[in-house]
Design a binder for these strands. Structure first.
Lengths: 339, 339
DNA sequence: TCGCGGTACTTATCCGGTTCAGCAGGTATT
DNA sequence: AATACCTGCTGAACCGGATAAGTACCGCGA
């Protein structure tokens, strides 16, 4: 049995397709009596608008795109992305807007997907994440003319609308906190070096250490996995002047680092202080619970989605600086051991 | 500047729209010379097919739907879902098929979303998860006539295509392993009682305990969160005949349970053995690393997606029983304390 | 030299909506 | 009484493709 169309409704109501269209869209042009009759018939035969036909007339796709250029397995491992996505979802859901999600291999494929989605009218806008230094996607997106919100620092977002949070300030707060505890040798286990926010954190870390006269005992870059976090930790803790504190770029690596420290018979926090970036339940559940830089990632995603929806609506929302991550001291940080 | 259409191409090439359509779709009806000319022009003016127009003629949406009825925050916390989604993605990506994702409040909204997506021709099929006992979604989906793969036991999938794994066997293996270690008092911290797979695990657990003559020291149902996992553990460990082993329905709760045990000055595994269901990196990263029931969830998702794509293609793939979860013994299980 | 068949198109229609011009018929205005 | 102006509707074009049916032309065999 075919899906009912407005032509079916028109036939049963004894009016024209046009009248049905006016009635169903709450537009003037039909009497209230006729409108009610048409709505009743539509209800009765279970009519559903066909978005394809609507889109053909320039209507919205009522969906926004997110193409993620990370190995698929990262998704399952990084709480950050799932929280971000769930935050985006929560905002979109309130506007009956769907999320088109695709995991892609590389940036080239990613742009191909965006080009196709936009070209085919399947999405009304997109969210760009994981900004690289001198990211080629930015000028390409600008050329496409699609509404785009960039999750990342304005300095790298070109003319696209940025939503970001001040990682530099968070790094400074952390380093100052560790310095106040008495630490003088602080290391950092960072994420992918090509990502803009890694560069920003690296730089802020370096500057904060210099300002406070701390010895920078090494920044190690990783791919965010627990394995590389463990390896980096092992390397840092094996060096002759090993750090008394390590700041990790995500909680997965911090937890892995904690395990390595314990494996090396170092007491956390007595011998080594650990700070995690991203405060998922994971950080609170290990022993000792981790001092972490937390913020509401879900809200972050929601804000980005709201900005995008405004942009799609033709508004001109300004860039948004979201909350800076806040340090929550827990059991993994303490003054360094006397030496 | 308007997006180019086949009419623009036709005008520039000096042929009709029909000829352009044939050329662009690689169908016979135009000479190779004309085809090449048309393709060149299409390339030059940056033509992209408009999916709406295609869909109007009954073409595929090239997307499948997944409406998740869980609080948004769960997504970020449960590694299972993200791995499942990334697995689904990996299979879909290979077929240039997108995933329409929406987090919904309740099953009613969920069905509304599916009805709309299907009615509006935005998806070609859907994946149903978190099957409930006597789930109303199954008959509704059957009535809709949309291609659907159910991730869950065939007994609850009606005429929809099930993809499942034998949780009962995994429970039996686990209980037998614990019994072989010498445990006689085994508990279970389970998930939501209304979920079909919880019921199946509950029953298998009960039967296995009975068969091996173990004392069942309680099954506690939770909502899968770390908090409830911790609370359930505290309750079980506070009872007079406390269990010497606990099997958890996910790793989040197992890790939370581990913390509670340590907080109560119980040594894991000397005083208490812990088994986690779902073997995410989390299980391996805590001290001691958790004995876990693991399987390739990503592959599970990929298999479901492949089944769905086959279904959409009009094939009639049979139900798929995926690998049973396998027990990986690690440091959290040992013989029970003497006494 | 006729007809047959194939090639290479064109034309027209359809998909399911939106939208605009037009047109009755009634009411208010002058 | 003629005019203007609503209201409530109709009919048709239109969006951008796919596709069935029709046609012009060519080569070829009989």
């Amino acid at each position: 049995m075919r899906r009912p169309t407005i032509a079916d409704i028109a036939r049963r109501a004894g009016v024209s397709k046009g009248a049905v269209s006016y009635a169903l869209n709450g537009r003037p042009g039909v009497s209230e009596a006729t409108r009610a009759r048409i709505l009743a018939i539509a209800q009765e035969i279970g009519w559903q608008p066909n978005s394809a036909a609507r889109a053909l007339n320039g209507a919205r796709a009522e969906a926004v795109g997110l193409a993620l250029c990370r190995p698929a397995r990262f998704l399952g491992m990084e709480p950050f992305f799932m929280e971000l996505i769930s935050g985006i979802e929560s905002e979109l859901a309130a506007h009956s807007c769907a999320l088109m999600l695709q995991v892609v291999r590389d940036h080239e494929t990613e742009m191909g997907v965006y080009r196709r989605w936009w070209g085919e009218g399947r999405v009304d806008g997109a969210i760009l994440v994981d900004l690289h230094v001198a990211d080629p996607r930015v000028p390409e997106m600008e050329a496409l003319g699609m509404p785009v919100v960039v999750i990342g620092h304005p300095s790298a977002a070109g003319s696209l609308l940025p939503v970001w949070s001040d990682d530099g300030a968070a790094v400074r707060e952390t380093v100052e906190y560790l310095a106040a505890l008495g630490h003088r040798r602080v290391s950092r286990v960072a994420g992918l070096p090509r990502l803009v926010h890694t560069a920003i954190r690296d730089r802020a870390f370096e500057e904060a250490c210099a300002a406070l006269g701390l010895a920078e005992t090494g920044v190690v870059h990783t791919d965010y996995t627990g394995e590389e976090g463990a390896r980096a930790t092992r390397r840092l803790l094996s060096s002759p002047h090993r750090p008394t504190a390590i700041v990790y770029d995500n909680d997965i690596m911090a937890v892995a680092g904690l395990s390595v420290a314990q494996e090396m018979r170092l007491d956390v926090p007595a011998d080594l202080s650990i700070v995690a970036w991203d405060d998922s339940p994971l950080s609170q559940v290990v022993r000792p619970p981790l001092t972490a830089l937390g913020r509401d990632i879900s809200a972050y995603g929601a804000h980005a989605a709201r900005r995008l929806l405004a942009l799609i609506d033709g508004a001109d929302p300004g860039p948004l600086e979201d909350d800076t991550a806040r340090l929550t001291p827990r059991g993994s940080t303490a003054p360094p051991p006397e030496s």
